[in-house]
Write a protein that binds this DNA or RNA. Sequence first.
DNA 1: AAATGACCAGAAAACCATTTCGGTCATCTG
DNA 2: CAGATGACCGAAATGGTTTTCTGGTCATTT
Lengths: 190, 190
Amino acid sequence: MDRRQEILEAATKSFSLFGYKGTTMEQVAKIANVGKGTIYTFFSNKEEILKEVVLSLIKEMKVAMDATIDTNKSFTENGHSVLMKMLEFRERHVLFAKLIEEEKELRTPAVKQMLQDIESEGISYIASRIETGMAKGEVHECNPPLVAYLLFKSYLAFVVDWQQIHDEPMSEDQILDIFKQTIFRGLQRQ
Amino acid sequence: MDRRQEILEAATKSFSLFGYKGTTMEQVAKIANVGKGTIYTFFSNKEEILKEVVLSLIKEMKVAMDATIDTNKSFTENGHSVLMKMLEFRERHVLFAKLIEEEKELRTPAVKQMLQDIESEGISYIASRIETGMAKGEVHECNPPLVAYLLFKSYLAFVVDWQQIHDEPMSEDQILDIFKQTIFRGLQRQ
DNA sequence: AAATGACCAGAAAACCATTTCGGTCATCTG
DNA sequence: CAGATGACCGAAATGGTTTTCTGGTCATTT
């Protein structure tokens, strides 16, 4: 198998297990069964590896979001599902969750940047959903990236922030309700 | 003038200047022109002083929000003004800004708690506005605390988070637009 | 009776010796 | 001789020890 790929997989494993900071190049080399120097013939530095690993992560996330979309369902239903899937992915995907933890605890700048990139990709995805909704006439004229940003941050607030203050997490039904009563109702045409 | 009040004012000054952690009891005593021991005849400990100081801060914030409300204006207009005022207060009020900075940099637990309390008071205030809007029939039936939470978090996202990624802050007009097109439209009756 | 500041114990800071790690490159090997 | 390797380097992180600082107390003073 090609060495470049082996290194990427080794790095993914190690990042998932020990985080970015907690991963040493020696460690990656050992898992990938290559010498440390070999890594540097494929990648210019540790951060480049993280970038590439995160690129796959983003692809995975998009696949997961694509899978939730049902063309027969309404914009609201699909929008809700996609946003919930994105946030589920956030906490279930081992590497993703590890990076979030690391950003919170260690504040590793490289990790912060990566998380922003992932977030921004997620928001773009939502924006494209809004655009198709607009094209279909299901959704009012609006600025899709802004509305996508609003939706993402709002969902994040209810799914993630909420349970950090209140004892129990909000149920998905409750979340759907509140958004149907507010943002989705505002977006819906007529 | 009464010593208790002097101590509170001294503490407010010092907290504003040096933050909670950066303030020593000796410092407060000196500014208040009392002996250190005297402080403990009025307050059981440092944290109690912070709590009391924050109580005034909350009062100030409520006064500022009350002042923006114009009973002739619509729910949307008032809601927007109140939320913007709250966020303006957040960054303009010296002590408030200092506490936010301290929470971000030092993560002082006592400060985190205080900020949560302030936030929760702000949200309650919005919730009460929504209730009166509902009573007037201007706003759809809904769960005011949840909607208030949504509004607060969304405004925070556009006012605070936005400019941490994008180069320039979003203009108030843009913010009003996006909310008119989404949440406020969803809330508005007919 | 109220105020005070010297005092104490534990927390934080400062210091520094030692280790670790990302990245390089002279050497090796197939 | 092209590609792989790991010993090596300087910078950064770690950890352990000493010193300083600070919240809170309380015997003494006013």
